[in-house]
Design a protein around this nucleic acid. Structure first.
Lengths: 325, 325
DNA sequence: ACTTGCCTTGAAACGCGTTTCATACATTAT
DNA sequence: ATAATGTATGAAACGCGTTTCAAGGCAAGT
């Protein structure tokens, strides 16, 4: 593989001049410019991007940490990130963590090793101190509510979103309300748990632990939930379901086994997945795609200018009433 | 940021010795080894991975080219790739192309620039010559049927899969058969088109151009298809739908607008998405996850050993008869 | 005629970890 | 005692593009 020095020799100029030509800098005579391009052609030269990265000290790569890519929620955020990254000529490095703390730390470690210029965290399990420890190593932007923690983030106010949906159910007369969630830890989940406690207390209802269904991420989980629900002695009359995929699973399986929705069980999903629309599922619409886009733009702006105006940005969620609640 | 020379000075050894310690090579006295680790601690040193990449000439990064990540088909392949990549300590660089030839070429160009050690192509639009032109720049593995073309690939035989499903429909008495597909170009699509021609001709039926629905990728497209179907004068009695997402869209919308499936219209999906299972959609199960895993293992083996035993590997597809056909 | 300023150009340093090669000493085999 | 091995260690080269700095040339300004 030819390198820049071979080019210089071939074109009869210095490496500095070659570099200038290759990068389109001014102050090179037309004659030498031509000679360099001819050498490029002749030697079939291509830049070694690794050398560029080392020399420049930056890579134009942003890392994306997420638990699973094969989930509409995360792939939608990713799509949003990806679109913007493309626009600004950045590459994306994927860190699929499966919520394994080891892997999350590995991603942070890679930031510190300068494998990428910044990191977007879609969701995490590792504690806040870990992020704090890597703050000096490059921009980190979260796609989750960070509360009191001093991080850069673009997020949906899941507390408010949950409150909104819960109040709607309460107003409709529901008192036995439960919810389905992916996991109990994580900032989004905790905000939701808080909202659940608060609204139910406000309505004078005692929240029940067994009305919270954990591990609800995929369609199949919805099937499981409705089957558990059927087997319960005291059943909730309404469920908030933090993923439309799961909500769809519930609705479809309910239909199969003859549970009437919303008469016997009201369902409010989250995301506004096309599936929810098609099934007429009442849902809280969340702007995942924009979330990803904004997260990228935030980190990009940070990288390019070195400073950021807003540390945090909140995106709206809105309840779309359809047929299931 | 401290570098390896600072470490050497601090520990009172040479850079070569530091490198040996950092990489766990033998032939370093316990004493110096300790001194180096202490210096690492004291100076809070971390390797600059860019320098490692340049020095080693490899990055342990594999690129993945796909049109959209926000689609179950591709995100499932990605998940398979990702799982294996993690296992072997590789990073993944995402190239989302949207089937834009420019972007596909950009990915290939990055391979040539050595941004990554190899490239996995999940689906592409660019012509075969383009790939051929980059063959010397690193391992390229396709996740599509490559036919006569001399590339490395792991794929599902879509011709056979289509034949299988079509013959089933023919045997069931269908003569007016159509299909839904993402796009007409691309090797998988062409294999399917060929199968469609062949089986219909074999059954003595004339294939009709208007019974082929293009641009079918997402759930919403299914909705569109069934609406078009209703408006047709001569309707097919059965549709092969190359994505369960689309098939689900068809089935659900059909249910809404009162089209009886399979009585009025039989549907066979592809993928065996959980959604298909839940909806009882007859489908051709495709092992996407394994496909991704095998693609990664193939490229990995190639990278590590420099040679490959098999150039191509075929994965099976099998028809799962459920309720819609 | 002389200063100021812009255009061109190249040598050399820089970013930083890896690897090769030579050297020096301590063992073990003959 | 001598040759043959093995262990330990550092200097220097290497991978390769970018960037700084100094210098020479030339035209416009005074």
């Amino acid at each position: 593989m030819a390198n820049i020095r071979d080019l210089a020799k071939e074109a009869g100029v210095s490496v500095a001049t070659v570099s200038r030509v290759l990068n389109g800098y001014p102050y090179v005579s037309e004659e030498k410019r031509k000679a360099v391009w001819e050498a490029v052609e002749k030697l079939n030269y291509t830049k070694n991007i690794q050398a560029v990265h080392l020399a420049k000290g930056r890579t134009a790569i942003v890392g994306v940490m997420l638990p699973y890519i094969h989930h509409p929620y995360f792939s939608a955020i990713m799509e949003g990130i990806s679109k913007e990254a493309l626009r600004y000529g950045y590459q994306l490095l994927l860190f699929q963590t499966n919520y394994d703390v080891e892997r999350e730390l590995e991603a942070l470690e890679r930031l510190r090793m300068r494998q990428m210029d910044g990191l977007i965290v879609c969701s995490h399990e590792v504690d806040w101190e870990a992020f704090a420890a890597y703050q000096g190593d490059g921009p980190i932007v979260l796609c989750e509510h960070v509360g009191e923690h001093d991080f850069f983030a673009v997020y949906i106010d899941h507390y408010q979103a949950f409150v909104q949906a819960l109040r709607y159910l309460v107003k409709k007369g529901h008192r036995r309300i439960g919810y389905c969630i992916g996991r109990m830890t994580g900032p989004n989940s905790q905000a939701r748990a808080a909202a659940y406690q608060d609204v139910l207390r406000e309505a004078g209802v005692i929240p029940r632990r067994q009305w919270i269904f954990e591990g609800c991420l995929f369609l199949e989980d919805g099937k499981r939930v409705i089957e558990q629900w059927v087997a319960m002695e005291e059943r909730p009359s309404a469920l908030l379901v933090t993923s439309d995929q799961v909500a769809a699973g519930i609705v479809l399986q309910a239909q199969r086994i003859g549970v009437r929705i919303p008469e016997e069980l009201s369902i409010i999903g989250f995301d506004n997945d096309p599936l929810a629309e098609l099934l007429g599922i009442t849902t809280v619409a969340l702007p995942h795609f924009q979330l990803g886009g904004k997260a990228f733009r935030l980190i990009h702006h940070w990288l390019e200018t070195g400073n950021v105006t807003r540390k945090q940005e909140e995106l709206p969620a809105r309840l779309l009433v359809r047929d299931t609640a």
